[in-house]
Structure formats: structure tokens, C-alpha cells
């Protein structure tokens, strides 16, 4: 089954890897990808529609699954490699939103394989890859920060050239939807390693939400009824109130127009918090 692989992998001097996928994952620049289980690829149902996206589909699939004939011409091999990468990427986008795919990506998230948020006040929050389009060849991969909920370009051009469609637009949001206990708190240092290991983010996020409520002097009364929920059920309605932000200053004085914009933004935030808390109080 693994015959013919050696020809492919010798080009990348990774002799230890014995399958196309492990060669692909270990080559430089592909650090964001996780391993798609072979069972998933071999189930044709999961590949529905991809044959129209990828030319030389069946041969590319054979290459990925290490079933490619040795007798294939060398000139085809070059283009086939491109098609195999595309096919693997598109399968990858589907794989990482499955239950098993999510848990594999969470392992990578815990290892901070996707880098950390460049925003200073996010305190090096680990990032998750995200696409801005699900169609290949449109946008390169971006990185989503669960703390500031914004998207950033990868630092290195190696990663900046990966297609965003190989990760898809849904992945990070589905991850936090399925694992709400992984939603990062808006303040405090990232203790990712420790907190994620014992699932302690649940408690962290809960305490955060409680803290946010307590600081809002005016909301103390509503807190009593709302805070009955247990750990893991913690509300995220008011977490934004705790989020830190940068305030531009000249010799210690805030700038008029920037301060005005920031007041407007914070008033918008307060309105959303009030809205969410009112909804929450009903439930």
C-alpha cells in the first residue's frame, strides 16, 4: 500500500515519514494543518463534490492515500502534487469541523501551533486559523483571536500563502460553540497550558463574568438573580466590560476625537451588554 511513496518524499529530505500525509504535515509552512484520519478520506461520502474542484481528482486522491502507481510519468507528478495539496486542503476544511477533527485542532491550539495574538492587550492569547472564504484561491489563511474576536494576518509569509479555504470560515466559531469552556476570558494573563489542561478555563471565564458584573456598581442588584448558573454555564453577556483597551494620549492627555470615538464604541458596547443581560434575566 505504501509503495511509490519514497519517490515523492525523497524530494523533501524527510526520510522518516512514510506516507504522503505525514510528509505533507512535516514540510515547512504546513504547521497549521492537522492530520486527517485515513478513514475519513476513504469514505467517499466525505468527499462529495470535491471531484469538480480538483483536476486529476482520482490520481490526487491516490497520491494522498499512497495508492498511486509507480508508473506515473514524472511530468505529471509535479502538477499532481499541486492538485493533491488542494484536495488535502479541501478535505482538511471539512475534517476540522467534525468532532474528531475539532479535538485534533484543540491539541494544536493548546500547543500554540497557530501563534499568539499580536494585539498587546490580548496578552499573547493563542490563535486559531480561519478562512475568509470557503472557495479556494480567494483569500489566504488568517488567524482568529478568541479574546479580541478579530482576525489577523500570519506573521510569516510562509503561512501567509496558505489558502484560507483549507480551514474554512466556520472552524474557530464552531470550536467555541462546541467547547464553550475554551472561550478565552477577556482579561488576565493567558495561562493557556495550565488552564486548558485541567479544563480550568471554565472556572476562569466564570470568575471573569462575575468580576465584570461586580465592577458594574449599578448592576449589583441584577447580579443576584443572574449568577445562579454553575461553572461552565457562566454567562458571557457582560464579559466585554472587562476587556482592556488602549487609550492614545499626548503628554498624558487623551485626544479629543479619539476619546469621542472610544466613548461611542463603549456606549455601543454597554447597549449590547444591557440587551444581553435583559434577555438573560428572562431565562
Amino acid at each position: 500500500m505504501l509503495r511509490g511513496v519514497d519517490d515523492v518524499s525523497t524530494g523533501s529530505d524527510s526520510d522518516y515519514s512514510n506516507s504522503w500525509i505525514s510528509w505533507f504535515l512535516s514540510s515547512k509552512g504546513n504547521e497549521y494543518f492537522c492530520e486527517v484520519e485515513e478513514d475519513y478520506i476513504l469514505d467517499r461520502f466525505n468527499l462529495t463534490g470535491l471531484n469538480t474542484e480538483v483536476s486529476n481528482y482520482s490520481q490526487a486522491l491516490d497520491l494522498i492515500t499512497d495508492n498511486l502507481d509507480d508508473e506515473i510519468q514524472d511530468e505529471l507528478r509535479g502538477t499532481l502534487d499541486v492538485q493533491a495539496r488542494l484536495l488535502y486542503g479541501l478535505i482538511h476544511a471539512r475534517w476540522i469541523v467534525t468532532a474528531r477533527g475539532l479535538s485534533k485542532m484543540i491539541e494544536k491550539y493548546k500547543r500554540v501551533d497557530f501563534g499568539r495574538c499580536p494585539r498587546v492587550l490580548c496578552q499573547s492569547q493563542p490563535l486559531l486559523p480561519v478562512g475568509l472564504s470557503d472557495v479556494p484561491y480567494e483569500k489566504s489563511v488568517k488567524l482568529y483571536c478568541g479574546r479580541c474576536e478579530d482576525v489577523y494576518s500570519p506573521k510569516s509569509s510562509r503561512h501567509g500563502s496558505i489558502d484560507g479555504a483549507y480551514f474554512g470560515t466556520s472552524f474557530p466559531h464552531l470550536l467555541f460553540l462546541v467547547y464553550p469552556n475554551l472561550i478565552p476570558p477577556k482579561v488576565g494573563p493567558v495561562d493557556a497550558a495550565a488552564a486548558l489542561r485541567n479544563g480550568g478555563v471554565v472556572a476562569g471565564a466564570g470568575a471573569e463574568a462575575e468580576g465584570a458584573r461586580r465592577t458594574r456598581r449599578v448592576r449589583e442588584d441584577s447580579e443576584v438573580e443572574g449568577s445562579g448558573s454553575g461553572v461552565g454555564e457562566a454567562s458571557t453577556a457582560s464579559v466585554a466590560l472587562k476587556a482592556e483597551r488602549y487609550r492614545p494620549r499626548i503628554y498624558g492627555f487623551q485626544l479629543h476625537e479619539t476619546a469621542k470615538l472610544q466613548r461611542w464604541q463603549e456606549a455601543t458596547r454597554d447597549r449590547q451588554v444591557a440587551r444581553l443581560e435583559a434577555i438573560e434575566d428572562l431565562n
Binding site: T236, A240, A243, Q265, E266, Q272
Partner: peptide
């Protein structure tokens, strides 16, 4: 936004 992982930080931008 009513989802627990709904957008909370859009105001910032």
C-alpha cells in the same frame, strides 16, 4: 450575539 460564543468585541472596532 445571544449565543455564549456570540460576538462580544465588535464595538472595539
Amino acid at each position: 450575539e445571544r449565543s455564549k460564543n456570540g460576538p462580544r468585541m465588535q464595538w472595539l472596532r
